[in-house]
Amino acid sequence: MDVVLNSLYNISTNNSVKPSVKEVPVSQDDSLKTAEAEEQKKLEEEKRVDKSNSAEKLSQDEKRLVADLQSRDAEVRTHEAAHQSGGASTGGASYTYQKGPDGRMYAIGGEVSISFQTGSTPQETIVNAQAVIASALAPADPSAQDIAVASSAMIMMMKAQQQVTQEAQEKLLGKETYKNAASTSDESKDIKT
């Protein structure tokens, strides 16, 4: 990411001008801002002219390459945005760029970090795994890496579901064992009486 910093203004502390009645005080910042705004407009216009000139100077092959790069850039950005909307993404997308013959940078690859962790309970792990699967498979055309991440999350989810099932069976068996023990002791009481 390119960061452009505005230049700092040098304002002297010895600016003591007494305006006449007809004069309106104008600060030095206003004139500098106006000059900078005009300069910025000129630079933007020059860039537009340079881009249109450079686009006109491109060969047919270069124009096709630029079109391909623009298409790939849009595809990559859409793909990564889909991952981010899935619910398990933990940050912004990072991109790999290629410079086109027109001098512009185009995204040709990208990645999004996805939180992939087990929960403190099997139910929490299932919810986390579902979010990872949704994020990994969110794009219309998931990559091999996306499918691998979703598969790993599916395995994690299935293990958690097995644990939930096992806990439920143990509860039922525990209750049935208690019922069996209670009915056996009731029967023995009936016999003893």
Rank of each mutant, 00 (worst) to 15 (best):
M1F: 02
V3P: 00
L5Y: 09
N10R: 12
I11E: 06
N15H: 04
S16R: 12
S16G: 04
S16C: 02
V17S: 07
K18W: 03
P19Y: 09
S20M: 14
V21K: 12
K22I: 09
V26A: 07
S27T: 15
S27N: 14
D29V: 13
D30G: 00
S31E: 04
S31C: 01
S31Q: 03
A35L: 10
E38M: 12
E45F: 02
D50Q: 12
K51M: 13
A55C: 00
K57P: 01
L58R: 13
S59V: 03
Q60E: 10
Q60H: 05
E62K: 05
K63Q: 05
R64V: 01
Q70H: 02
S71R: 15
E75G: 00
R77Q: 03
A81H: 01
A82M: 10
H83M: 04
G86A: 09
S89Y: 06
A93M: 08
T96K: 13
Y97R: 08
G100E: 08
G100Q: 08
P101D: 10
D102C: 04
R104L: 14
R104A: 12
M105C: 02
M105A: 08
Y106V: 04
V112T: 13
S113K: 15
S113R: 14
S113L: 12
S113W: 04
I114C: 02
S120K: 15
S120A: 13
T121Y: 05
T121W: 01
T121L: 07
Q130A: 06
A134D: 15
A138G: 03
P139Y: 06
A140G: 15
S152W: 02
M158R: 10
K159D: 10
A160Y: 01
Q162R: 04
Q166V: 07
E167V: 02
A168Y: 10
Q169M: 11
L173S: 02
K175M: 02
E176C: 05
K179L: 10
N180K: 12
D186Q: 13
S188N: 07
S188W: 09
